[in-house]
Amino acid sequence: MLAGAMAALCLLLIGPSAPSGAPVAKPLPADAATDVVPNRVMTWNICNPCNRSGQNLGRAMEIATYAPQVVGLQEACVRDVEKIREYLQNFYGLVYHVEYGSVLRNWGRCGGWPWRPGGFGQAILSAAPMTDRVTVEYPDGGSEDRGYMAVTTTVSGRSVRVFNTHLAQRRQEAVRADQIGVLAAEVARHDRAIVLGDFNSVPDAPELSRMWPLAADADPQCRPSPAGACEPTTDWYSKFDYVFLRGIAPLAHRVHASPYSDHHLLYADLGAT
């Protein structure tokens, strides 16, 4: 009886044994980060619904490979983010705080009971604590409710305001222009800010014209002109994902395609003001 009780407790705590389908972490690449990189920030639209096998463990592995100080996730279900955080800690030893910017409760996207659907929107993971969280739903979300969230946290040992947003889907340029107006007005209040997100706009799109005077892309070669050399961040070879920096200098950046989303991971290493 004691052995049976202990086995049941183990199943409750860690799930079924590996042969029954329990998650098994893959080893990280040889050049993976060994600990959180304090001046690194990442943005990633993790795709929903994608329903790839083992996607949350795969997402955790991708994040752990680069181990940023701050991660902004879009199209994030609360349940998915909880699993990602669990895997990051249990398999890779990375502990992140989390804040959510859910603007939609959607059973079709995030599961849950029909009368209690899961939260859907943005999330920010941070190795340092976060304060002063706000979640703002745009007055017009377009074809689906959209918004931004913001927190204050520490990057490179300094306090900074971090924004995370997801703008209206493609072919809704006028809606995105209004959304960027709302976001830009708040970003402009801060001398130091990092703006992460899926803007659903290429760099020279007219609706992005409110952002470029406020903040620069983490890639110094990426500019709002046809001559700008901007790396694609999606499977359809468009740049929709951005790390905008206000009052902060970029050091390096990388775009990494992932099998767990139709958007690529984009991270930036940051310098001083």
Rank of each mutant, 00 (worst) to 15 (best):
L104A: 11
L104S: 07
D132G: 11
H97Y: 12
G118C: 03
L104R: 02
V136L: 10
G142S: 10
T152P: 07
F199Y: 11
F199Q: 00
T165N: 07
V155N: 05
Y148C: 00
R85Y: 13
P139W: 04
N90Q: 14
Y138M: 07
Q122L: 02
L125I: 07
I180D: 00
R105L: 03
W107K: 04
S143P: 03
G121C: 03
N164A: 02
F120Y: 14
R171W: 14
H97V: 06
Q74N: 12
T165A: 13
E144T: 13
T165V: 04
S126W: 03
R85H: 01
E75P: 10
R192E: 09
V134M: 05
A184S: 12
R192S: 15
Q172T: 05
N90W: 13
A128D: 14
C110R: 05
Q74C: 11
A193M: 07
I180A: 06
L88G: 05
R170T: 14
N200G: 09
R133D: 12
R158Q: 10
G141H: 08
T135K: 14
E186V: 14
T154G: 06
E186G: 09
V155H: 06
E173V: 10
A127S: 11
R146P: 03
R105N: 10
E82Y: 08
V155I: 10
F91T: 04
R133W: 12
R116N: 10
A184Y: 09
Y96T: 14
V195H: 03
F120T: 00
V78T: 15
C77V: 06
A123C: 07
S143Q: 14
R192H: 08
W115S: 12
A168W: 04
A184Q: 03
V151D: 02
L167M: 06
W113R: 15
R105T: 11
N90C: 08
V78D: 08
V195R: 02
